[in-house]
Design a protein around this nucleic acid. Structure first.
Lengths: 222, 222
DNA sequence: CTTCTGCTAATTGTATACAATAAAGCGAAC
DNA sequence: GTTCGCTTTATTGTATACAATTAGCAGAAG
């Protein structure tokens, strides 16, 4: 996407993720255009993309609203991620080269450094973690799988949960990555698959723990 | 999508599937607009959708081209379908009601009727088959899964292959649906999953047989 | 009191003009 | 002869005006 569309996309996405907009809020093109300082054309493009991301839902009459993510939806998303990323890990194990393994080790070292500080560096953790998973996905060598997963991976759920990780969860994440790398070194697809699936499922349970009693994702603002 | 966008989408999609446009052909908005009798705006929307469908690819400089589907890509798509539709079948088996089972039986009966004629009624087969799979997918009750699969399910591969089915393949398809219904009646998720996965894989092999020696999807026209 | 109908206002869809950007072709310098 | 850079041209991005559609509401009929 190009400049204005990107600005619009990031802006709207930010408003949704930050809770400035709540579930079910209507998204009117004209209003968003003013808010983002662009015309309706790039807004329309951004909304289409956000719809693919499932952050925005459209009614049959083409009106757009902020999507609502119930706990079931979140579970659903994590389940699919577990399956698809597990599959990706298996394929990656069958195709990986030593160079890629080294690169993964490098990312995981950076993750370790970020979470070993007295006060964990969450943004760095998130970035390296993202890169780690992206590299696995690339190594899987399936453009379609990549397409499906990217729509699933960068979603509010993932985004919000990490801030609530406790130190143990960080450690678990890091050591699961290490296990995954071991599976890759042995080119053991099934092992890689099961580690990855478990890795995602653990993230889901971390999410559940973090959101216990706080009404899931309802009402982000206020 | 609305009228003009739809027309554009169908028209371009048709041009690609029929082979009127070949892999790698550039898609220029202005030219398509004229060809479809609409302005560039709906064309742009259609192209974005076709890109999601993976029928169109865009370069970094935002130019659009007809995507090329190598045999590997086709295999890739079928593998993902097998996994995801298998998953959907398992979920469906855990959630299905007797009414839905009856409806599936009804579709499968219609399929049987269509393929039992002296000269099989392929369009009807395709329609009922589509409805059968769509109902399973709905019953799975995962909007995200549905989202992912619809992007995968209506693709050139599926579309073209059925025309080359031999009578045996039609029969197999019908009897696998019957098996699936049995699994649903017993609410046996794992069974349903494996039948569905096999069902899709068989379709892939039917595709391979039909395209043996005819250079996969290269050069559809001429 | 409810429901249907028609009007009004709000919102999205489409077309088109113009701006920005990337590709292609040409020419000069080395 | 090749390569670098400029100019030209083709193509996409953005803004805006207008058309079409939809929702919301008021008012009359039952």
């Amino acid at each position: 996407m190009s400049k204005a569309s990107d600005r619009a996309y990031d802006a709207i996405r930010g408003m949704i993720l930050s809770g400035e907009l709540s579930s079910g809020d209507p998204l009117r093109e004209e209003a968003l255009a003013q808010a983002c300082g662009v015309s309706r054309t790039p807004i329309r493009e951004a909304l289409r993309q956000l719809e693919v991301d499932l952050l925005v839902r459209r009614t049959e009459s083409q009106r757009s609203y902020v999507a609502d993510w119930s706990l079931d939806d979140v579970a659903d998303a994590f389940e699919l991620r577990a399956m698809l990323e597990g599959h990706a890990a298996r394929r990656a194990a069958e195709r990986i080269t030593d160079d890629i393994v080294d690169e993964l080790k490098h990312y995981n070292k950076a993750i370790f450094a970020a979470i070993s500080k007295p006060r964990p560096d969450v943004p760095t953790f998130l970035d390296r973690n993202r890169e780690f998973h992206a590299l696995v996905l690339d190594t899987a060598g399936s453009p379609r799988l990549k397409n499906l997963l990217t729509a699933l991976i960068e979603q509010p759920v993932v985004w919000r949960t990490a801030h609530n990780y406790d130190p143990t969860a960080f450690q678990n994440s890091h050591s699961e990555h290490a296990d995954l790398i071991s599976a890759f070194e042995r080119r053991d697809g099934p092992w890689a698959e099961s580690i990855m699936a478990g890795h995602i499922r653990r993230a889901f349970h971390a999410y559940c723990d973090a959101h216990k009693g706080m009404g899931a994702l309802k009402k982000g603002a206020a």
